[in-house]
Amino acid sequence: MRIATTIFLTDETITPVRLAQELEQRGFHGLYLPEHTHIPVSRESPYPAGGPLPPEYGRTLDPFVALGQAAAVTERLGLGTGITLVAQHDPIGLAKQAATLDFVSGGRFTLGVGFGWNAEEAADHGVDRRRRRAIVRDRMALMRALWAAEPTAYEGEFGSVSASQAHPKPVRAPRERAGAPPLTGPRTLVGGRAGPTLLAHIAEYADGWLPVGGRGVAETLPELRRVWQEAGRPGDGPEVVPYAVLPSPGKLAHYAELGIEEVVLQLPPADEAEVLRTLDAYAQYL
């Protein structure tokens, strides 16, 4: 099982360069970073975990800039977003960012796709939270057109792009889909709570699921695999990568029994000394 990590990197924590170097030297598989552009102080949206919102949510580094630093000082470390708030981005610019990071890292990038829980943050970006899933689906289709091998136009409900020269291309080869154009782009995992819409989105435009905390994986896997096969996707099913997991030997053994090959462990949003102590504790799982 591959053991990756995630952390809220901020202006007060360990730096991206130091963390990336330590992760690669210690043998961890990857680093995933979350995204929040800002947190409006009105705080009308409740924190999904309950209680007050932790301060690191309003201090996060831009994940693409931080991961670019991590890519420059490592050779093997996987790099991912956990997650990118796709609806809050211009899709043409985001397609370029993702393809560039994948290219300069030698194909090590994973695009984690999320829909967002903070309505005030989304509203400042002009996003109607009620339509966010449809917006993300449309954005992903537009980006796939820019990632295609040949100039490809796209016209959707929320955006369009003319057939264009758009390089660099993501490193990962297109994935076949029965009755549909190949799936282009970097490795893509969709985060969120299991439900019919989420499972359909995974099967349509992603390579797998990024369940936060690993909740509901065993119950959801059979249905996810059924939806995957009905969508004409090859193989036994999508990748499932439990995310932001607080580990224990029993929990990781359970994931292994389910056939899960990668788990992302949560690191504290802390200074260098505390983060390195946590990595020492997690070393038993490598």
Rank of each mutant, 00 (worst) to 15 (best):
38 H>S: 09
121 E>K: 04
91 P>N: 13
40 P>C: 06
5 T>L: 12
88 Q>G: 01
205 Y>Q: 13
239 E>W: 05
32 Y>G: 07
158 F>A: 00
183 L>F: 03
241 V>T: 12
195 G>M: 04
221 L>S: 01
20 A>G: 09
213 G>N: 07
181 P>D: 01
60 T>E: 14
89 H>G: 04
121 E>C: 07
119 A>F: 06
254 H>Y: 09
111 L>V: 05
140 M>N: 00
111 L>Q: 10
239 E>F: 10
52 P>N: 03
108 R>G: 10
258 L>Q: 09
119 A>S: 11
65 V>L: 13
77 L>I: 12
202 I>G: 01
23 L>R: 04
99 A>T: 11
68 G>W: 10
191 G>F: 09
122 A>H: 06
58 G>M: 05
218 A>K: 11
153 A>W: 06
273 A>K: 13
56 E>Y: 15
212 V>M: 13
136 V>K: 00
68 G>F: 03
132 R>C: 01
252 L>A: 07
282 Y>D: 03
144 R>C: 07
135 I>Y: 05
225 R>H: 12
59 R>N: 04
173 A>D: 07
94 L>R: 03
276 L>S: 01
160 S>T: 14
153 A>Q: 04
69 Q>M: 15
214 G>P: 02
84 T>R: 03
84 T>G: 04
77 L>H: 10
119 A>Q: 13
148 A>F: 06
44 E>D: 13
224 L>E: 02
137 R>L: 02
106 G>V: 10
241 V>R: 06
63 P>Y: 11
206 A>N: 08
228 W>S: 04
284 Q>E: 15
49 A>Y: 14
141 A>G: 05
227 V>I: 14
260 I>C: 05
125 H>F: 15
185 G>I: 06
60 T>D: 00
201 H>D: 15
175 R>D: 00
216 G>I: 13
142 L>M: 07
114 G>E: 04
14 I>E: 07
83 I>W: 03
265 L>F: 11
262 E>G: 05
16 P>L: 07
63 P>L: 11
169 K>D: 01
